[in-house]
Design a protein around this nucleic acid. Structure first.
Lengths: 122, 122
DNA sequence: CTTTGTGCAAACGATTTGCAGGATG
DNA sequence: CATCCTGCAAATCGTTTGCACAAAG
């Protein structure tokens, strides 16, 4: 993958925030001060970064796709009120083990989605 | 909620299948023989059924929203090749427990998403 | 000079909405 | 007769695509 200013900007923006932004949030964040990238470029940069394995998609909400530069396995917490998303470290959840998963199913990866209410929304 | 033929049809269609169909799949399935409902009605029926708690949304794929008439807690398996989805019974996964989840976060519900390959795609 | 990336605008697909009947209570 | 539901078409939103040009190897 060629490292272009736009791709670099998208990736470092993702690295600098922990809120799993949508493509559009990244776009407005990058163009806040000076226009750096166009919408189509954000999408294609995200695609490229995803293919290279630097970024992953997070699907926790209807309609939008969020992005995450943390590609290490981890779980997600999502507040049902404000919709905020928080990472839950892998070690914070005790050993999950599958018994009698139908033979024939090969597990590659798994993660927990925790729905609840965050402190601010209590 | 008023029980109308359209809502009944959507719900029983969902009950009769285990593949977590999209709104569009439900629409084409219902209108296969005779036209029973329009697109907008499917969406509003699903909305109504969701609010009443008879149906839940399943977000496992980019772009589309799938629906499930099984509202009991359970996990999901998704095949990365064919995209098929399979329910994993709650008891098939051994006791998950959270240690030291940030105080302030109230957990209401959680579920596991297992990514892998199904038998047909091996 | 060939390949790859960018920007713009148009296209697309899933979902929602506005509105005019219809059916229900 | 007031409310809720349906169907149609148009609108909206997130994402993708086609194309011309610029940049990189």
């Amino acid at each position: 993958m060629r490292v272009t200013p736009q791709r670099f900007a998208v990736y470092s923006n993702l690295l600098s925030r922990k809120d799993h932004p949508t493509a559009e949030q990244i776009l407005t964040s990058l163009n806040k001060n000076s226009p750096t990238s166009s919408q189509a470029t954000i999408y294609s940069s995200l695609q490229a970064l995803k293919e290279v394995g630097l970024v992953r998609e997070v699907l926790l909400e209807e309609g939008v796709c969020r992005y995450d530069a943390n590609v290490l396995p981890h779980h997600h917490f999502r507040c049902g009120k404000c919709g905020c998303i928080e990472d839950i470290a892998w070690e914070q959840v005790e050993g999950i083990s599958f018994k009698e998963l139908r033979p024939g199913l090969t597990v590659e990866q798994y993660e927990l989605t925790i729905h609840g209410i965050c402190e601010r929304c209590q």
